[in-house]
């Protein structure tokens, strides 16, 4: 049983699944802001969870395969899980700038299309980046503001608000 600062493994899973009682969730969020150890643990758990979910899905899809192929697939899945970096870019608590842009593009694409998302991001990068080509943690907030403006210009204020909220809650400028 993984128990740290009174938070059980079950509670961590509920927290990551988003099924936790809102009051308890607020408590854990407040704790994570103060406790670096628990924040790191949450980050690691999020990565493991994502990997397991992905592999589970892959295996479910492959369940109709003959036993030999299924065994091979299981072995490969375990290998992938074992070789994964526990703390990485995919963690919901440790986003890099590149991941942040990927997340925003992922959110925008179903609404305004991949082409519009790409054009708006390119425009926001040009307007925000120091050297005209790169966005860093330092100018992330400016980038999000510019992307929100470009999105609002085409898709409306609601879509701009979505980009703004999602972009800022990634917390990239703090890193």
């Amino acid at each position: 049983m993984l128990l740290q600062h009174g938070i059980s493994e079950r509670k961590w899973l509920e927290f990551l699944d988003g099924t936790m009682d809102p009051e308890e969730r607020r408590g854990i969020r407040a704790h994570l802001e103060k406790c670096a150890g628990c924040a790191k643990l949450a980050s690691e758990l999020a990565v493991w969870r994502n990997l397991l979910l992905a592999e589970g899905l892959r295996l479910r899809e492959a369940s109709r395969l003959p036993d030999e192929e299924l065994d091979l697939l299981l072995a490969r899945s375990m290998e992938r899980i074992r070789s994964a970096e526990p703390v990485g870019a995919r963690s919901s608590f440790a986003w890099t700038v590149a991941d942040g842009i990927r997340v925003l593009r992922f959110l925008m694409e179903p609404i305004c299309g991949p082409g519009t998302a790409r054009a708006a991001i390119e425009l926001a990068v040009r307007r925000s980046a120091d050297d005209g080509s790169r966005v860093s943690g330092r100018n992330w907030r400016l980038f999000v503001g510019n992307l929100s403006d470009a999105t609002a210009l085409i898709c409306g204020l609601a879509a701009g608000r979505l980009v703004d909220r999602a972009g800022l809650c990634l917390g990239i400028e703090e890193r």
Partner: peptide, 26 residues
């Protein structure tokens, strides 16, 4: 759609980002 999603990000950003993280991993 954008408005509903933005509301969800305001209410519980961690849960939404965990979902995106999952989808991006997939």
């Amino acid at each position: 759609s954008a408005s509903e999603l933005a509301d969800r990000y305001e209410a519980d950003p961690e849960a939404e980002l965990a979902g995106v993280s999952r989808a991006l991993a997939l």
